[in-house]
């Protein structure tokens, strides 16, 4: 990856992490851990890969993004705000009764959101429908979806996995954000999802394993996905829940809890320090 682009993406992702903390802190609820684990990938998609235009969010030829793990909405909102889909001030209104930013993504409220998600397992099916829509209408837009690793315990994910492969949806890329943690514990303890790559490969997907926080690897994987014909691609993204905020990293307790005043300050101090280093 071009060094300047990489630095720019790291800066943007760091700012998006601040948005996640800002939003959940002000909302006094939400899901920072799983938002921080997938925010690098969402940043990459919106700032370096997808064909989207904040001034024309409903462009019928745009690439689509479906956040199947809808509880990571703060990550999507932070990236959409930075990309200019809506004002940065909206971030502080997250989850409030007069906000355009719902607890889980909704096309009824938020410009730039392509699908209502949040009920786990459903986003990937909608993404399949969008990819099918591109094929049926002869358009070359591509569809991206991010799933949680706990989410793939839902049976509907495997219905969709079978479908995407059978219908040869090579314009679809699904990312499994493999932070290894779900509400009740590790995904191994609760109801093991492993081996993830082998399961998707058995369903006929092109599987690529990456470090979810390394933009070089992210770029290579999405480029490879674009070249893969005849089958959908699954990016098995090994991530760290809470990535970027020291006390949240790899802590299951930060799945669905907002930082308090002190925690907020510490997180922002850490992220500001990281940003200062990046911008030096």
């Amino acid at each position: 990856m071009d060094a300047a682009l990489k630095k720019q993406l790291e800066i943007t992702a760091c700012k998006a992490r601040m948005g996640i903390i800002e939003g959940t802190f002000n909302a006094k609820s939400g899901h920072p851990g799983g938002a921080l684990s997938c925010v690098d990938i969402i940043t990459y998609l919106y700032f370096a890969h997808m064909n989207v235009d904040a001034a024309n969010p409903k462009d019928e030829n745009r690439d689509r993004f479906v956040l199947s793990k809808g509880h990571a909405a703060p990550a999507l909102y932070a990236v959409l705000a930075l990309k200019g889909f809506f004002p940065q001030e909206w971030i502080k209104t997250l989850r409030k009764s007069d906000s355009k930013l719902q607890g889980h993504p909704s096309i009824a409220y938020t410009p730039g959101v392509d699908m209502c998600t949040g009920s786990l397992g459903q986003g990937i099916s909608a993404a399949c429908g969008m990819a099918l829509g591109a094929k049926l209408s002869g358009k070359d837009f591509r569809v991206y979806t991010v799933l949680g690793d706990g989410e793939i315990q839902e049976g509907q994910v495997w219905e969709a996995a079978m479908y995407a492969s059978a219908k040869k949806l090579d314009n679809l890329v699904a990312v499994v954000d493999n932070n290894n943690l779900q509400i009740d514990g590790s995904v191994e303890e609760v109801n093991s999802v492993y081996p993830i790559g082998e399961k998707f490969a058995a369903f006929g997907w092109n599987v690529i394993e990456i470090n979810a926080h390394d933009f070089d690897e992210i770029e290579k994987a999405f480029a490879a996905a674009r070249e893969c014909k005849g089958r959908p691609t699954l990016l098995l993204a090994k991530s760290v829940k809470g990535k970027g905020v020291s006390y949240m990293e790899d802590q299951v307790g930060w799945h669905g809890k907002a930082p308090n005043e002190e925690e907020y300050k510490q997180a922002m101090d850490e992220l500001n320090a990281a940003l200062a280093v990046l911008e030096k």
Binding site: R64, D114, M115, S125, A126, L132, G133, Q156, A160, Y163
Partner: peptide
């Protein structure tokens, strides 16, 4: 070419229907 069979998976079919509808069908 405009008929798509999902096989026996109604939940996914409804999701696919939703996604397809967002693309103008």
């Amino acid at each position: 070419s405009r008929f798509i069979d999902s096989g026996i998976q109604e939940s996914n079919m409804m999701g696919v229907a939703a996604g397809l509808a967002t693309t103008g069908f």
